Amino acid sequence: MNEIVHSRFPKITPEGLEDLRSRIGVKIENTVEPWCYEATRDNIRHYAHGIGDDNPLWCDPDYAKTTRYGDVIALPSFLFATSRIISGYVGGLSGVHAMWSGADWTWHKPISRNTTIRTEAYLKDLIEHDTRFAGRAVQQIYHVDFFDADTDELLASADSWCFRTDRDHAREKGTKYTEVRSREARGYTKDELESFFKFYEQEEIRGAVPRYWEDVVEGEDLPTMVKGPMTVTGFIAYAQGWGGLYIRANKLAWRQHVNHPGLGIENKRGIPDCPERVHWEEDFALEVGAPGAYDYGPERCSWLTHQVTNWMGDDGFLRQSKCQVRRHNPEGDIVLIKGTVLRKFVEDGRHLVEIQQRAVNQDDELSAIGSAIVELPTR
């Protein structure tokens, strides 16, 4: 007798992939409205606080007046709030789960206060994979350029990617997170928490003290940065600064579900609700094969750049950053970000440092890997 399989969610189909492939290289018109159009004082601060970054260069205008910028500037990762596409708003394959999994950034100029951001985007590539988490998956890569809308200067460029996965397969047959899902919810003693909170007490923002290229030594470590313990409150704090992808209320939520039926996944009360609730609703996260409510991908990418901007000081400039997400960080996890200077070099007259980064949780399980290239002042 054949087993009857009940599928709740749509699946990846050849027709859906063919439609997506026809979009490769085509400029996306009428992109969904971003959370932030301008790098205002409040928008910058809300994003910075959403990742736990209190650097006065982005948060304190009085301090920023004393720097070479003369005013607050946006932290590099703020640009996630100016494009839904770079943050994971994917097209095609209606109803198929999307997991944001990484980004490759290049910045060309600092982002001054009150800059209005204009973006251009296109689907860059589709790559099929066979994954431990969800079997067949599609890596959907987008490219986005960020411009100063008034001067048309290119501020930054980035590729980001999501993995599109079959939710039912991930829940029923995925193996990568079976062990994580089966473990008890993470808890800590007071002493254990204090050992992690020491990192917060000791966190150093380099600020006005220049870090000169000549003083950097290859092989030296950056101060370890801690994020967590993960809580739904923390995930919501990030969404407040970043804007989320599908968080809408009342009429706007209804309109979104009418325009994009695949997004309106019924909750336990039969009400259409957004797929983004995997970040605050544990039961739904388990339904899609995740180990529980978990952090946002762009949030984790921003944590890695936070470590670097703390280290480089006001006179440094973050040129490039890469981040690849390796696992979910469910509620209770604590993440430790470690960085090492890989090399020093000079290119086109710029004195640059390459940094290698690795983020692990409290059990030394790999959370993310990354790298950065920083331009530093010279003596």
Rank of each mutant, 00 (worst) to 15 (best):
P377V: 11
Q202P: 01
V308E: 13
V288H: 00
T131S: 13
R183E: 15
R358N: 01
L126T: 08
I247D: 05
N361S: 02
R211Q: 03
D295I: 00
R269Y: 10
W35R: 10
S367M: 07
P291R: 11
F163D: 05
R277L: 06
T233L: 12
A185E: 15
I205G: 04
E354V: 01
G241T: 13
T106D: 07
K124A: 10
T189P: 04
E266M: 10
V216Y: 07
S182P: 07
H260G: 00
S22I: 00
E179C: 00
V32L: 08
F147L: 08
K322Y: 00
T189D: 13
N55W: 10
V288A: 03
T224Y: 02
D53N: 14
G289N: 10
W35G: 01
E375F: 00
E201L: 11
R136P: 00
L342M: 06
I73N: 04
E128D: 12
C162E: 03
L318F: 03
A137T: 03
C36D: 04
G313I: 00
E153I: 04
K190T: 09
A74F: 11
R350W: 05
W161Y: 08
R327L: 04
E128G: 04
E281P: 02
G244L: 09
I334Y: 04
W161G: 01
F146A: 02
F78N: 02
T40Q: 05
N55Q: 08
N55L: 08
C59Q: 07
E287Y: 05
F133H: 14
E172N: 12
I117R: 12
K268L: 09
D166E: 09
W161E: 03
Y200G: 01
K227M: 02
P223N: 09
N114W: 02
H97M: 15
L263N: 10
D363W: 04
Y238P: 10
T189C: 09
P330W: 01
G332W: 14
T66Y: 00
S371R: 10
W100H: 12
A137H: 07
S87F: 01
V209R: 13
N2Y: 01
G228A: 10
P275R: 12
V360F: 01
